[in-house]
Simulated assay, not measured.
Amino acid sequence: MINSRTAFLAAPVLMGAYGIIRIVDGLDGSRGPGPAWTLGHLCFLGALYFFVQGFTAMRTAAGGNRLSTVGLWAGTAGAVAVGVQFAIDLVVGFLSADRTAMEDLFTRIQDVPGVLPAFYDFGPLLFFVGQLILVCQLAKRRILKPWAPVLVLIDTTLPFAEKDLIPLGAVLLLVSFAPLYRSREVAAGAGTENRSGLARSR
């Protein structure tokens, strides 16, 4: 099993890598298809895997209560939705010769009933909602700093304002998650409420 200390570091770092590669990919005025498109999307899929690992440890550190469980399942469902979206992007990139062909294929896929709401419009929002719930739970228990939910909320809104700000959002997550990857008790997933209590008392 992945050490959750690694997850709390790897998830933001890989997300930031995606954001940087995305910027580089767009320097010629067009994003995808090509190696940068593929590498960037693989980085983000890796980030999603580590985020889900982190969500599981966060729920445990929060005591496994009902609200943290809702956060875990909402965040995981959202991660799956985002993962499907990025998997579609990868397939489209592999099957297309240029950006125009990509746009045509995207349109055909997104015209399939249910695809847009499930994987583009509403499904991905669950990822951000679940993450914010878990971070608020840990801030309430003083495992995370009181301002951590604010930074996570800012990270959530940045891509909607400007996707080129994704690397900045990744830095905010690294700052927010610092107590989690620095504390062996919390990041180990604890497994018991006693360990979570130890992390709270610090």
Results as ranks from 00 to 15, higher is better:
G189Q: 04
V129K: 00
L95M: 14
A187L: 12
L153C: 10
G32H: 07
L42I: 13
I143Q: 09
F160N: 09
V112E: 04
L168S: 06
A187N: 04
C136R: 15
G197D: 14
L165P: 07
D98K: 01
G114E: 04
S201C: 04
G29L: 02
T6N: 12
V129P: 09
R200P: 08
T38W: 02
L9F: 05
L48I: 05
L168I: 15
I23N: 00
D104P: 08
F106H: 13
Q131P: 05
L153T: 03
L39R: 00
M15A: 15
G93P: 04
I166C: 08
A10S: 07
P35M: 05
L14Q: 00
P167A: 00
D164M: 14
A81Y: 06
T76M: 14
N65E: 15
L165R: 03
L138K: 02
Q110K: 15
E185P: 03
N194G: 15
G191E: 11
V171N: 02
E162G: 12
R200A: 15
S196N: 12
F94T: 13
L9N: 01
A57C: 09
G54D: 06
A61Q: 12
A77N: 09
E162P: 05
F51E: 06
A7F: 10
A10D: 06
A118W: 05
T107H: 15
L158E: 06
R66C: 01
L45P: 08
G64V: 07
M1V: 06
T38N: 10
G189E: 04
T38M: 13
Y181R: 04
L132H: 08
P12M: 04
L132A: 07
A17K: 00
A118N: 03
D89M: 11
I109H: 04
L45W: 11
R184I: 13
L126C: 02
S96R: 02
D28A: 09
A101F: 13
D104T: 14
R141T: 03
T60C: 07
P117M: 10
A81P: 01
A81L: 11
G29C: 02
D25T: 08
P146H: 00
E162T: 06
I154S: 00
T69I: 02
Y49E: 00
A61L: 13
G19W: 01
A97F: 02
R59H: 10
V52M: 04
G191D: 07
L67Q: 14
D155M: 15
P117N: 06
P117V: 03
F177R: 01
A10Q: 03
V91M: 05
S183C: 10
G78Q: 09
L165K: 10
H41E: 08
F51P: 02
L125T: 14
G32C: 07
T157I: 14
A36V: 07
L172W: 02
R142Y: 09
W73R: 13
G32Q: 11
N194M: 10
L144G: 02
L95V: 12
Q131C: 08
L126S: 06
L67G: 11
S201D: 12
V152F: 08
L39V: 12
I20Y: 07
G130F: 07
I2L: 14
G93E: 06
G32T: 05
L180Q: 00
T100F: 04
T157Q: 13
A190W: 08
V91I: 12
L174G: 11
L39H: 06
T107F: 15
L14N: 05
M102T: 12
I88N: 06
G123E: 03
A81H: 11
M58I: 08
T56Y: 12
